[in-house]
Amino acid sequence: MTNALKVYVRNSTLQRLGQVSEYTSLTVVPRHNAIGAIALELPADSPSAPLLVEGNGLIVKTAGGDTVLTGPIRTVDWTRSAGDGGNGTLKVGAVSDDELLARYACWPVPTAAIGSQTAAVYKINTASTEGGMRDLVNLNAGPGGQASRRHALLALAANGARGSALVRQVNQFDNLLTTLQDIAGAAGLGFRVIQVGSALQFQVFTPTDRSKTARFSFGLGNLTDANYSTVPPTCTRAIVVAGGGTSPRVCKTYDRSDPLFPGLVLEQFVDQTSVDSASVDLAAQMDQAGNEALANGAGQGSLSISPIDLPNLRYGRDYNVGDTVSAQLRGGTWYTDVVREVTLTSTAGESSVKATVGGDTGDGTVARIYQYIARLKKDVGRLTTRKAA
């Protein structure tokens, strides 16, 4: 039987060198707005083994030819024991091309030399969130940046002007990937870097709400197991301070009650002292900083489900990483949230899908699984009170 996923090897200039058709195990983990992973195992004496070296990369496609994940090889491990036949086993690890973004910092003046970085922040004021994200990538790592910093293979997809206007300051030399994650998360957008032809293309997209059509439950017969967990909040009150240097100091607090711990107050200082308090966009910048701190510090919930691919509901066709899906949990309640990552496992003739839903701020406030558990806890409390009475 043939493998469900096809794997190809590329060289450092993204040219395809050949196919790895004899792998014994493949695990592919696409992640929403984060670095994915590929783990490949095959006999060390396979014809394609000489191609699997650091510096080359992997391309994973479905049987139908759709690209699942692409990225550079990072580890190649060889093992052999007394009981092994042949020349042993190769275990190859790769990361998704999104890791390219983690290599770069956000310079306060991206077009200036390092000795001319006199500003403390990089200011964004664009008509769309996507425009601001593209500018960050283009000027720090892409064709619009300094020659010494440009990634020769990086290209940008066309600007779809997704998201509302963006007014924001980026602290000097903040990590590019982390900054994009904060911006995209607040705007409900997705982004990725993936090989398209002979380039690594930075793409911004709007995830799709498929909660009405991508529905998983034991009753529907398309779910084998499910479990959820929670992490408590780290910030419920953001104290934002701007100015104080050459302009008057301005302080403001932003509060957000946690559904599982409604009386808990966790204060966090948010340093915006680099923002001149006389700035016309002071309120917008303080609001942005306060809301991001609350979103990043919110209690988190994560749901892990193992869906079964059926003819009418398949991963990659009917839902993808970043989309919103539904799952039926305890008591028959339907829970909806974003697919944060999917683990695709393929061996000879067999494949499986495991999805992680939620896992961060989800709806921009608190992950919905977290809210669901809060409601469940409240209902149990009411039931206990009635029994006691």
Rank of each mutant, 00 (worst) to 15 (best):
I308W: 08
R256L: 08
S302I: 08
S302T: 10
Q272R: 15
L282W: 00
A284P: 03
L310V: 14
E292W: 13
T273F: 03
Y315S: 06
C235N: 07
G243C: 06
D271K: 11
C235G: 02
L303E: 05
T246Q: 06
V231D: 09
D281M: 01
V270L: 03
C235R: 00
P307E: 06
Q288R: 14
G316Y: 11
N312W: 13
P307T: 04
A242E: 00
V280I: 09
V321T: 13
M286R: 00
R317M: 11
P311Q: 04
P232I: 02
A283H: 06
N291I: 08
T236W: 08
D276H: 10
D276Q: 09
L303M: 14
S279K: 04
V270S: 01
P248T: 01
S274N: 12
C235D: 03
G322D: 12
S306D: 11
P262T: 06
D281A: 03
A295V: 15
E292T: 15
S277T: 06
L260T: 05
T236M: 04
L260C: 07
P262Y: 06
G243H: 07
I239G: 00
V275F: 01
S302E: 11
V231G: 02
R237L: 03
Q268S: 12
V241E: 10
E267Q: 13
D255T: 13
A238L: 05
A283C: 01
P259M: 04
D271Q: 10
N312D: 15
P311S: 02
K252Q: 14
A295P: 12
L310H: 09
E292R: 14
I305A: 04
N320M: 08
T253A: 07
G243Q: 03
V265M: 05
D271N: 15
V321W: 07
L310T: 15
K252T: 06
A289Y: 08
P262K: 08
P311H: 02
A242T: 02
D255R: 13
Y315V: 06
I239E: 10
V275Q: 06
D309L: 07
L260N: 11
T236N: 00
N291H: 15
G322T: 09
Q285L: 13
G297V: 07
G243D: 02
S257M: 11
D271R: 09
D255C: 11
D287C: 00
D258Y: 09
R317K: 14
I305V: 14
V231T: 14
I308Q: 14
D287E: 12
R249V: 03
N320A: 06
G297Y: 07
S274M: 13
R317L: 14
E267D: 13
V250N: 01
L264Q: 14
Y254F: 15
D318S: 10
A289E: 06
K252L: 04
I308H: 09
A283E: 09
